[in-house]
Simulated assay, not measured.
Amino acid sequence: MTGHNRHCFTYGSLMTEHIMFGVCGMQLSAKPARLTGFSRHPVKDEDYPGIVPSDADEVHGVLYLAVPADAIARLDAFEGEQYRRTPVTVECPDGQQLSADTYVFRPELAHLLLPGDWDEAAFEREGRARFERKFTRED
């Protein structure tokens, strides 16, 4: 594995910087970005979403810049078996297009995705506390 850093596009719980910090163990530079050709959906019985390819849709999220390989490995472990790390191109508000990795929900698990967009406001209001208790326990 080369030691070069990758950008990482996040669209759910990891848009919250302190959750991303908890997973990666480091502070990362971030900026808003948009991913076209995907749609975001709630995962059944979970507080986090998944994305799947969808030609006419787009997902707004947070792009973390220059994520080191060891942090990517931690993200891979955090995201687990439901997701596949996938290279994508995202667009920043200034029109700049950047290559990044993102975590796409595995097609064979698509039956776990609910219709409609993931409710980011509901996550902030109620899901985030549950999510943090479940996923960011101190070792």
Rank of each mutant, 00 (worst) to 15 (best):
Y48F: 09
F135N: 14
H4P: 08
E138P: 09
A129F: 08
K134R: 15
P93N: 02
F78L: 05
G12T: 02
T86V: 06
H41P: 04
D70T: 09
T36V: 15
F131Q: 03
T89P: 09
L112E: 12
F38G: 03
V90T: 04
A66F: 10
A73H: 08
V59K: 00
S39F: 02
R106I: 01
E120D: 14
M15I: 12
A71V: 06
S13N: 05
P107V: 01
R137M: 11
D55F: 12
M1Q: 15
R34W: 03
E46F: 09
D139P: 15
A66K: 15
H18K: 09
F105P: 02
K44N: 11
F105M: 06
P42D: 00
T2Y: 08
V67M: 01
G116F: 01
F21M: 10
G127H: 05
S13G: 12
L35I: 09
P42K: 00
E108K: 10
T102M: 06
G25K: 01
M1V: 13
A73N: 13
I72A: 06
V52C: 07
R40P: 00
N5D: 15
R137D: 13
V90P: 12
P87W: 01
Q96M: 13
S99E: 13
A121D: 14
Y11C: 05
D45L: 04
W118P: 10
H4K: 11
A56M: 12
T2Q: 12
V59I: 06
A100L: 03
Q96H: 11
V88M: 03
L112F: 04
T89M: 08
W118Y: 04
M1K: 14
P107W: 01
A66T: 11
L35Q: 02
E124K: 14
D117N: 14
P49C: 00
T136N: 13
H18N: 14
T2K: 11
E132L: 08
R34G: 06
E138S: 15
F78H: 06
S29V: 09
A66V: 06
L28D: 03
H18T: 12
D45N: 15
E91F: 04
G127E: 02
R128C: 10
C92N: 02
R40I: 00
T10S: 10
H7C: 07
S99I: 08
K44S: 09
R85E: 06
M26K: 05
C8L: 15
V43C: 01
E91N: 02
K134M: 14
Q27P: 08
V52M: 09
F123Q: 04
P107M: 03
A66M: 11
V88A: 04
Y103W: 14
P107T: 08
G3M: 10
P42I: 00
A71S: 15
C92K: 04
G37C: 00
Q96V: 12
A66C: 13
D117W: 07
F9N: 04
L63T: 04
A33G: 07
G61V: 06
H4S: 13
